[in-house]
């Protein structure tokens, strides 16, 4: 077999192996991987600072009660990570009504989230699991 064929097969093997061994053993829950309540609080505090430093995002918080937002945001993340919390805030669609969050602003928030998760040393694969959950909610957030 020639070299490029071997390379193609080798790469495919890696791809398939990665795809196949998603849960080799009882993995920690996403909530645990994010450091439970203290980890989520640190992540959200880091993220809020990044929002405040980005005018495009910060302007959307002009009329927001920040301590309340912080508490509900942590609650929401905890719930979607299957942690021991119940989100008590408004439905996302209601919470974002009138904010006119466009695609670019939504993605700016995603980028800040990735930077904050990197800063909090959340492993890439755990980051991707959270982003996958949040991505499904985009339709309830943008252009409301």
């Amino acid at each position: 077999m020639n070299a490029p064929n071997r390379l193609v097969l080798f790469t495919l093997a890696i791809v398939l192996t990665l795809a196949g061994c998603a849960t080799p053993r009882p993995a920690p829950t996403l909530y645990e991987q994010f450091g439970a309540e203290p980890g989520l609080a640190a992540l959200v505090d880091d993220l809020l600072e990044r929002f405040a430093d980005d005018p495009r995002v910060g302007v959307k918080f002009a009329n927001t009660n920040i301590p309340r937002f912080r508490r509900l945001f942590i609650e929401h993340l905890c719930q979607i990570m299957d942690g021991p919390c119940t989100y008590t805030g408004d439905r996302l669609e209601e919470a974002h009504r009138g904010l006119s969050i466009d695609e670019g602003t939504f993605n700016a928030v995603v980028e800040h989230l990735i930077d904050a998760m990197d800063a909090q040393r959340i492993p890439t694969r755990a980051q991707n699991r959270l982003i996958a959950k949040l991505a499904a909610m985009r339709k309830d957030v943008i252009y409301k």
């Binding site: 791809v15 998603a22 890439t124 694969r125 991707n128 996958a132």
Partner: peptide, 9 residues
């Protein structure tokens, strides 16, 4: 997202 053993595919 996360489709290749946790990595994006």
């Amino acid at each position: 997202l996360g489709g290749a053993g946790g990595y994006n595919l």
